[in-house]
């Protein structure tokens, strides 16, 4: 056990510098490259064009990217624990499908041009919220929650929502179609400062709240009934954790679109490094998700300069390949080990 705590300490001590590195890297790369070593001095002087770029464009984007990455990864690791299923990710439960449907309806109906920029995130969030309620109430049976049927209901609602979205896309104009597609692919390019602030605080409070449920999450690794035998109120914990993960996902999706794979790849990677104990897994996934998204965004912004790739493309390709390498690697190690 002491060895485990030492591993945790080493893990955190390597992760924190990585956070700093990813932030400095993200600050320095882009259409105009700024030397990483100059970043600090530019912030110190507090004037000039470079300062404006860093302060007004790159820094807000970094805050958003880190918050979204952390929140998605955290939501993923929470849901994997609640459902005891390593393949569940934040988008499995239909929240993203609902959000995407909400956004496509608004774009398809042309409401998008008439009202301000907040309408798309609001529509996405409403769509996600409606889905959460649907999943929640459809899976309630006589006051108790059936965890496995909840998962199935979420997957089904996700299918229905994506079909409905395709219906909207098939019947709308080419311009709206383009807008919907662009939104779905996900972007961290968010001009609204308020939304960035909201996302950041939701994300951080999500991490803090999740730590209030670290014991139920650890007990749920044994299965629901054994967690109950250990004195855990599983029904209440599962409910709150589900709502927490849903809200985190809903906010991320409505602000940044669909950024795939973060909620699946990062928690898996962290589990391989430090094991299944949620005491470290929650913070590890949060920080890991933030770092991962920042690196991916740095690539997305620079790989086809002066244009920018949707970040979902990079997280998908990069994350997917990394995941395959890690999984096959660890499988091989396991089989040769035995």
């Amino acid at each position: 056990m002491k060895r485990k705590y030492r591993t945790w300490l080493i893990f955190i001590l390597t992760l924190l510098p990585l956070v700093v590195i990813s932030i400095i890297l993200s600050l320095s790369v882009g259409e105009m490259n700024i030397s990483p070593f100059q970043v600090f001095s530019i912030f110190k002087t507090g004037e000039g064009m470079e300062y404006t770029i860093l302060r007004e464009i790159r820094l807000p984007r970094i805050i958003l990217g880190f918050a979204v990455g952390g929140a998605l990864s955290l939501a993923g690791v929470i849901l994997q624990g609640v459902y005891r299923n390593p393949l569940v990710e934040p988008y499995t439960l239909g929240i993203s499908g609902g959000a995407a449907l909400g956004v496509s309806i608004v774009i398809g109906a042309g409401l998008y041009h008439q009202v301000g920029s907040l309408v798309l995130p609001a529509a996405g969030f409403m769509g996600g919220l409606i889905t959460i309620f649907l999943v929640f109430f459809l899976s309630m049976k006589k006051g108790s929650l059936n965890i496995q049927s909840m998962l199935l209901i979420g997957v089904m609602i996700s299918f229905v929502a994506s079909s409905a979205m395709m219906f909207v896309m098939a019947t709308t104009t080419a311009e709206s179609l383009h807008n919907i597609m662009f939104w779905i692919m996900g972007s961290l390019d968010e001009p609204d400062q308020l939304l960035i602030k909201i996302t950041f605080w939701v994300s951080v409070s999500g991490l803090l709240i999740s730590y209030m449920f670290v014991r139920p999450l650890n007990a749920l690794r044994l299965g629901e009934s054994r967690a109950k035998h250990l004195g855990i109120n599983t029904t209440r914990s599962v409910r709150i954790l589900f709502i927490l993960a849903s809200l985190l996902t809903g906010v991320c999706v409505s602000v940044a679109g669909l950024i795939g794979f973060v909620g699946l790849v990062v928690p898996h990677f962290i589990k391989l490094l430090i094991g299944n104990d949620y005491r470290m897994l929650l913070a590890g996934s949060f920080l890991g998700g933030g770092i991962f998204v920042l690196f991916c965004d740095a690539i997305a912004r620079t790989i086809i300069l002066p244009n920018e790739l949707p970040i979902g493309v990079i997280t998908g390709i990069f994350g997917g390949i990394l995941f395959l390498l890690v999984i096959t690697g660890s499988l091989q190690r396991k089989t040769t080990h035995e």
Binding site: S225, H229, L230, N276
Partner: peptide, 26 residues
């Protein structure tokens, strides 16, 4: 304390597993 039949896979070490039994006393 209850010992039920164990059929599912649980990914943790023996010590972590036994320590979970201390949870009601935390």
């Amino acid at each position: 304390a209850i010992v039920t039949q164990d059929t599912e896979s649980i990914g943790m070490t023996v010590e972590e597993y036994v320590l979970l039994g201390r949870m009601p006393h935390h």
